[in-house]
Design a binder for these strands. Structure first.
Lengths: 169, 169
DNA sequence: CTTGGAATGTCAACAAGACTGACGTATTTT
DNA sequence: AAAATACGTCAGTCTTGTTGACATTCCAAG
């Protein structure tokens, strides 16, 4: 509360970008941009009885083929029961395969089938197209700043997951 | 599909930041960052029988006091039935007031009560605190880039709403 | 070797929050 | 007077999150 305007009052002018008003703009930008970010895949998914949750599962299984349910759980940040429902439909529909682990038979290793990869491509293409347009319009320096801010905005656990994913490639 | 790697193949090196891999990273950064972005308000709301939907309504009523239901509908991008459920509880609980319009009596003008403003402050402070940390760590140039990319990522309608809100202040 | 606890995953039931469709009412516009 | 607009509401559905209970598997301590 009292913390609010103390930023620019205390430090002259170099920190003008930290005013409450600037922060509020950032918050709203985040809100509106996220809507755009998910709009295209949502449109594709609607009508095929899948939703955003399916998209997320497909995305990360694609990135880490053979990953376990537990692994996916940590990345997605939902309960295993919630993930399971999504996974079940994907497996039933032949988009994902689930193999019992060799060393640890409790684990299930998840992989996309050909059909799964095809859908992943379709969704990914749509989402990347928007991203690419945004990146191109903004230019490389803006993109660098964009990523820097997003990374500082993550929870530490999420940042770890994010970095781990990047390193794995 | 075939469009994928054509970016860097076609244009030498200046467009390396537009590779599929770079875009994929951006997508994941967006996903993880948005989780962090909503985490703090979500934590506050949980247990008070409110959710993210209430937060959004409160946020925009605070920013545009006296706004109408229709206005809010356009900004939030949900159906009136959905918004109504949220609004009803907020009004019942004395956080929002609804006044019949003076010039057009069909309209309802929405305003936060003192209690509503108090909750808005609490939520806003939490969200801004994270935003401020992220901004401070990233620095002013990164923040500028961040906003540029987010704005290019919005749907045109959303961008219009976003800009309009900014101008109104 | 057995047994109890921890880890992994599945099934069932429920809640929040989004959606559609239909309808009622008051008010404004044509 | 009729049509359109703004708002509220009821009923029903869907997605996606939750908790609770349970089966299977693994591992380690007795």
């Amino acid at each position: 509360m009292a913390e609010g305007q103390s930023q620019n009052a205390s430090s002259g002018q170099a920190l003008l970008y930290l005013t409450d008003e600037q922060l509020r703009q950032g918050i709203e930008a985040m809100f509106f941009a996220y809507r755009g970010f998910t709009a295209d895949p949502d449109r594709i998914l609607e009508g095929m009885s899948y939703g955003r949750a399916h998209h997320r599962a497909i995305h990360f299984i694609h990135c880490a083929p053979g990953t376990t349910v537990n692994n996916l759980l940590a990345i997605l940040g939902v309960t295993k029961q919630s993930l399971n429902r999504v996974l079940r439909t994907l497996i039933e529909d032949g988009l994902v395969t689930s193999h019992v682990g060799r060393s640890d038979k409790r684990e299930r290793h998840l992989t996309l089938t050909e059909a799964g990869e095809a859908l992943e491509q379709q969704l990914s293409d749509a989402q990347r197209a928007r991203m690419r347009d945004a990146y191109r319009k903004a230019g490389p320096e803006a993109v660098a700043g964009f990523k820097t801010v997003l990374e500082s905005m993550m929870d530490d656990d999420m940042k770890r997951a994010y970095v781990t994913l990047r390193e794995g490639r």
